[in-house]
Simulated assay, not measured.
Amino acid sequence: MNMTRIQTASPEAVYIHIPFCTNKCHYCDFNSYVLKGQPVMDYLAALEREMERTALVTPPGEIDTIFVGGGTPTVLLPEQMAVFLRMVETYFPNRSEAFEFTMEANPGTTDAEKLAAMKEGGVNRISFGVQSFDPSLLTAIGRIHDVDDVYRSIANARAAGFGNLSIDLMFGLPGQTVETLNRSIDAALALDLQHYSIYGLKVEENTLFHKLYQRNELPLPSEDDEVEMYALIMRRLREAGYGQYEISNFARPGCESRHNITYWRNRSYYGLGAGAHGYHGGERHVNIKGIQPYIDATQNGLPRMEQFAVSREEAMEDFMMVGLRMLDGVDAAEFARQFDGAALEEVFAPVLSSLTERGLLVRSDSGGYRLSEGGIMVGNEIFGAFVGYFA
């Protein structure tokens, strides 16, 4: 069972990292750097070198999704944005009929000129990092936009012809209550968007919030309040007609994030840019994180910080951990397809039996397994049951 599983087909999904931000939010541990003084055009030139080499090493076929994350990609100036999107078109030109091209954006960073450049460059979906509609909370978590910026940005995007919009919200924030969250949900639903991502705060190392937490100066909601917040989110979004297709994501029918589904189905994807992760041919890689080190590394080859083979057992564990995040669960036929005919129920019999008996997993219509209603509330415990299963 120590064989490396090889994915031979070219990835159909592309992730590209733009690491620049206007400022660093108090909770953020992403690979991002304050924009001022950064060599943006040098970075874009380095990104083009990585794209060119990647396309030579692993020639792309038909691309189904592209996702540009950060950082805040929309801090690029309109002319920089146009240069960047022309590069993407050059190296990943062959696109599926239902092609999805998402760009993350911060409210207040998308004026009409920039949106026009994005539209012309093929972007057809925007994900805005809103986080809250409570002005005091936005300040407390280090966001520099205000609520008016949110409304203006959504209106500008719609005026520019974007019909597939998403926003991120957060819960479990310092000082947040069930009532203040409910008001944010009211405001979010009033926008009548196609998609909502709603995440619980994680206090990550190397963030201001982690320092405050260690000093007992971070007034987080109680665990009971967090559970109530999550239950409220699920109820409100479902009542408003949004399907919960993943534990933190809700969409109108047909508007699910197809790019993120690539990750949750444990499928391969290109990862480009400083600190980006990629997965293909039974290998994962992580790129060099620093801006100048990344730029320098692309002069001599692919800018890898780390590259390692994923064993068949690890890939099976990953399949379960990420696949069970989807509310339709893991599919037995897909498991067999990815793992040379292996039977899901035989490979994971003890843990599946235990979780099913506890009422946390149920059999799905596809013959696989999915989270029960109760299981959704303790998802991390269930995903953790597959970590190191073969160790």
Score class of each variant (00 low, 15 high):
165 L>M: 03
4 T>H: 12
7 Q>C: 10
316 M>W: 05
240 A>N: 11
79 E>K: 12
147 V>A: 14
333 A>H: 13
289 K>T: 12
331 D>S: 11
213 Y>A: 11
367 G>Q: 04
379 G>A: 15
193 L>Q: 04
277 H>I: 11
21 C>N: 00
138 L>H: 04
317 E>Y: 12
289 K>D: 13
193 L>S: 03
250 F>L: 14
249 N>T: 13
150 V>C: 15
156 N>Y: 11
210 H>P: 00
314 E>F: 05
246 E>S: 05
172 G>E: 02
339 F>Y: 04
143 R>E: 03
294 Y>K: 03
384 G>F: 12
382 I>L: 09
307 Q>H: 14
63 I>S: 04
249 N>F: 09
86 R>S: 15
121 G>M: 09
239 E>G: 10
291 I>Y: 07
51 M>D: 01
335 F>M: 13
11 P>A: 11
82 A>V: 11
102 T>G: 08
390 F>P: 13
240 A>G: 09
249 N>S: 15
143 R>A: 10
359 G>M: 03
276 A>W: 03
127 S>P: 03
190 A>W: 02
106 N>T: 12
70 G>D: 10
255 C>V: 07
223 E>N: 11
210 H>D: 10
338 Q>T: 00
237 L>E: 04
337 R>Y: 02
151 Y>D: 13
66 I>L: 10
232 L>G: 01
